[in-house]
């Protein structure tokens, strides 16, 4: 699962060889008076896995949540700077957050299936987006569950409560739920941090698999995980983007001392 060789070996932010799907210019985020993100500029490429790493509280999750505007839900959050998805400024006044979130899906740190049946968990999002025909819903549910590599485990109990699943299964169900509505981007906020090693392995395999169809941005605490699944890695520290490069380079030959200290486990 090494990073594909076709990727240009330049530092992405300065690269003009590709057009990033997600990009920010000097993005700053304030919680009340405190500045949580300090002028982040970066571009994220399509159909690759980009990992955000850094010690707790470095702002990586907050930054991730800027891309589908989940930070809007928190009182007192203010954002300055530019944040574009597909070339559109998503913080522009006339942007429909709902439409944005349909296209930028999210998987959370703690699996959060609805207290409904497995089937209904996935059908919910489909119905939201106007898909009503039972046969179509059934088809997509199956396809999504297969896509999330959980179909074989749940196909006989689709109509039982999702809360009866194990933690790893719940998380894969949440991934299935997110991909069922066909977003273009999938944001993952430490999706495997609450799982045991076996379940983590399954989720990681799944992420690599999903790369074919989605642009994935994943926040992770686990540096081995980042090396296993991501093409690019961005290292954040105290609300700043310290270094952003090919994963292989970040972990073998980082440019900054801070990055090196972190990836070699000297702090964090």
């Amino acid at each position: 699962m090494a990073a594909p060789t076709s990727i240009p070996a330049t530092n992405p932010p300065s690269s003009s060889e590709f057009k990033p799907l997600l990009e920010t210019q000097n993005l700053e985020l304030f919680y009340g008076a405190s500045r949580a993100l300090k002028g982040i500029t970066m571009g994220i490429r399509e159909n690759l896995v980009t990992a955000f790493i850094g010690p707790s509280g470095c702002g990586k999750s907050t930054f991730l949540r800027c891309f589908n505007r989940m930070n809007d839900l928190i009182d007192g959050v203010r954002i300055v700077g530019e944040c574009r998805v597909g070339g559109e400024d998503i913080y522009a006044r006339d942007v429909d957050v709902i439409e944005l979130r349909k296209r930028v899906g999210m998987v959370f740190q703690r699996s959060n299936p609805f207290p409904k049946s497995i089937f209904e968990n996935i059908a919910y999002g489909l119905r939201l987006h106007g898909i009503r025909a039972t046969s179509e819903i059934e088809g997509i549910v199956e396809q999504s569950l297969k896509g999330a590599a959980i179909w074989d485990e749940v196909k006989d109990r689709l109509h039982q409560s999702a809360l009866g699943l194990s933690g790893g299964q719940q998380q894969r169900l949440c991934i299935a739920r997110a991909i069922a509505i066909r977003p273009q981007v999938l944001l993952m906020d430490e999706p495997a941090s609450a799982l045991d090693p076996i379940a983590t392995g399954k989720v990681e395999d799944l992420i690599v698999e999903l790369k074919k169809d989605f642009t994935i941005v994943i926040v992770t605490h686990n540096m081995q995980q980042a090396t296993r699944i991501s093409d690019y890695t961005a290292f954040f520290y105290l609300g700043e983007l310290v270094e952003y490069d090919l994963t292989t380079r970040i972990f073998t030959n980082p440019a900054k001392k801070k990055t090196e200290d972190y990836v070699t486990g000297r702090f964090g």
Binding site: M70, L73, R103, F108, N112, G125, L128, R177, A178
Partner: peptide
């Protein structure tokens, strides 16, 4: 988490 999950799916 439940609200977030729903909103992240594009629910109003």
């Amino acid at each position: 988490g439940l609200r977030e999950a729903s909103l992240a799916l594009g629910a109003t």
